[in-house]
Computed example of a mutant assay.
Amino acid sequence: MTTAGNQDAEGVRLQKALANAGVASRRVIEQYIVEGRIRVNGRTVSELGTRIDPENDLIDVDGTAVQLDVSKRYVMLNKPTGIYSTMRDEKGRPDLRRFTKEWEERLYNVGRLDAETSGLLILTNDGELAHVLAHPSFGVTKVYIAKVSGTVTAQTIAKLTRGFDLEDGPIKADKARLLDASRGSSLVELTLHSGRNRIVRRMMAAVGHPVEELVRRQFGPLHLGTLPVGKARELTKIERGALLTLSRQDTPAAAGDDDKQETE
């Protein structure tokens, strides 16, 4: 970041860069600067002549990160069951390539969902963001809806949130609630930040209710919403800002969940 005091300043004026990113008009952005609502690399900007390096400087407005690099793509997929979370499955099984044909960029999945699990998966060409969000030590919150066998009781819900031991150590849900129970099965909503392999399936099996169907409905600030199964769409500007803000928070989760990349 450079300031107006440097006559040979390189880079782009802050208000121009933010206007090009679709944040607001230059005049409105100048007002934001005066009001102290914009930060560059964590420092509040007060000078209207501030110049930035769009490729390296990190900008946020009202605490929400701004995407300046328009070459980056962020896509939400509602992955169907039967699809393997890889861009090229070495065994020739159905993979994610069929969902990325609409985009010229080479996209990669952030983390994984196993073939039997459906739901929200992020695809991007932003390697740095993908690495941060997929690493279990970062502890991104995920919300799952599990259809399980048997009638889940209040005592079981309490056990899920209180915690218990699995073969690879203690585990507990951040939140758990029973959504429905009928005809010998139950719907349970689980909120977790753990990145351990197949953790929802292992937790439910451990409390006596094996998973029959599993859907991931939320990943960090992103919600699956009404996106149909098998469809993909680019994130909105608000969603991109929320995801980038999350990825820039250097707050690893508690030790113990950082040994493997997430698979559910």
Rank of each mutant, 00 (worst) to 15 (best):
G5Q: 13
Q7V: 13
D8E: 14
G11L: 07
G11T: 05
G11S: 07
A17C: 12
N20Y: 05
A21L: 09
G22M: 11
S25Q: 05
R27I: 08
I29Y: 01
V34M: 08
I38T: 00
R39F: 02
V40C: 12
E47A: 14
E47R: 14
P54W: 11
P54H: 09
E55F: 12
D57P: 03
D57C: 04
I59P: 04
D60Q: 13
V61P: 02
D62T: 02
A65Q: 04
A65N: 02
L68Q: 05
D69Q: 10
V70C: 05
K72Y: 03
V75E: 00
M76P: 01
G82L: 01
G82N: 12
I83G: 00
I83K: 01
Y84I: 15
R88K: 13
D89E: 08
D89C: 11
K91L: 15
P94H: 09
L96N: 00
R97C: 02
R98H: 04
F99H: 07
K101M: 15
R106P: 04
Y108E: 12
T117K: 00
L120M: 05
T124A: 04
N125W: 04
N125M: 06
A130E: 01
L133T: 04
A134G: 06
V140K: 01
T141N: 11
I145S: 09
S149C: 11
T156A: 12
T156M: 14
I157A: 05
I157E: 01
T161D: 07
R162K: 15
D165L: 05
E167I: 08
P170N: 10
P170Q: 10
I171D: 07
I171R: 03
K175V: 06
K175Y: 10
R177F: 03
R177H: 11
R177G: 03
S182H: 11
R183V: 02
S185H: 15
S185C: 11
S186D: 08
V188M: 10
T191S: 11
H193M: 08
N197K: 15
I199E: 07
V200N: 05
R202F: 04
A206T: 13
H209I: 08
P210D: 11
E212L: 14
E213Q: 15
L214A: 10
L214C: 09
R217P: 00
R217M: 11
P221H: 09
L227T: 06
P228L: 09
A232T: 12
A232E: 08
L235M: 15
L235H: 05
I238V: 14
I238Y: 12
E239H: 10
E239F: 08
G241T: 00
A242F: 02
D250K: 08
A253P: 00
D257N: 13
D257I: 14
D259L: 15
D259M: 12
E264C: 04
